[in-house]
Design a binder for these strands. Structure first.
Lengths: 197, 197
DNA sequence: TCCATTTGTCAACGATTGTTGACTTTTTAG
DNA sequence: CTAAAAAGTCAACAATCGTTGACAAATGGA
């Protein structure tokens, strides 16, 4: 009967609110301290609730993390992509995802834990294969779209690492314009450049 | 009196050997599973020794990690660097560091834990400031050497993440030549390109 | 050989972790 | 209003963690 509430979004029945509070606290703490660094007790404290409730609503820490680590990059539809500006398009969307007004901690959650948590790593590879790769495949020979998307991801994940997780001072100091002007051309060449593999 | 052994390297006195065994096991496990993922008991088991000995030789897990997380990139001397081939030089050295015959797990240790361990993050920023930045400063206007070195690091750390930690299949599949041919020019432009900041 | 130092073993400590079950309070429906 | 279901509280469990101290074995110099 709880299953119905998803199909009939009429009742935000009190439990849904605390459920959302837990998930929000979890996303925040997972993004900031990683899977191991954020304990269930920390999440519960941040949601002003008992640790047992976290397990009640989500069955385990793993499942809570799985629910928290949902990422939708909302990359442009394939038909709208211009082959000549794909680099700039990607880096602009990158900045929106990480710093835009509607930005969520989704990518930070994955990236923070991907180095020591196999589930997070697999989820990140999924994002690459199902969200980044198709976009690159729309502007390049699908035969080596994987390679090109891999190079694009290496630059974007590296930039995210340095700017948002590692917080390397000179990379933090970069303005949006600087980033677009320097990294954009790199992505353009990786995604749609004419050099042979 | 134990302090003397470092200045007088005469006696490989039995304890130095187990000390080295512990350190080697620690470097291996820290590189593979990160700071949290590798327990002192795991390290001890890998070194075929009692967990208490690990604490005896190194005073704590933190200190053991600090000893294990020593990185010397051995980048080319500043005088030998050619401004026109700095990109290729850097990417070639990168591949040697990670895959060469004399490659150690140093960078993997730092990168694996830098996202969730502040000490590792600080150590990685040190490597950037004291080893990468000077090299870039040798071929570019020292005024924005930090910015350029930051961009270089973003690409190199991202490549390392994708290829060695995350193991993104298309990035793992790249041959050395492909990497040099595609990433080299990027580094060249970041380190010594003529675009304005 | 004898003794002091080093090297190693063992068991246990306190803390933290994810997780569970019994219980109480609150909400909801008839 | 009343009874059932939901929501929340509390204490405790087993496991793992880093770390410690007491004790045994080995080593090496006199």
């Amino acid at each position: 009967m709880n299953f119905m509430t998803e199909n009939q979004p009429k009742k935000p029945s009190k439990s849904d609110r605390t459920r959302a509070q837990i998930l929000e606290a979890a996303r925040l703490l997972f993004a900031e301290h990683g899977y191991d660094g954020a304990s269930i007790r920390d999440v519960a404290a941040h949601a002003s609730i008992d640790p047992a409730m976290v397990i009640r609503y989500f069955r385990s820490k793993d499942e809570l993390f799985a629910r928290a680590a949902v990422v939708d990059l909302q990359l442009p539809a394939l038909r709208v992509i211009d082959r000549n500006t794909i680099g700039e398009t990607l880096i602009r969307r990158f900045l929106e995802i990480w710093e835009g007004p509607a930005s969520g901690p989704g990518m930070a959650i994955l990236l923070r834990s991907a180095t020591s948590n196999e589930f997070a790593a697999e989820k990140l590879r999924d994002v690459f294969a199902n969200q980044v790769r198709p976009v690159v495949a729309a502007v390049a020979d699908p035969a080596d779209a994987g390679r090109r998307a891999g190079l694009v991801s290496s630059q974007l994940l590296g930039l995210a690492m340095c700017r948002y997780l590692l917080r390397l001072p000179p990379v933090v100091a970069l303005s949006h314009d600087e980033i677009i002007r320097t990294v954009g051309p790199t992505l353009q060449r990786y995604a749609a450049g004419e050099d042979a593999p």
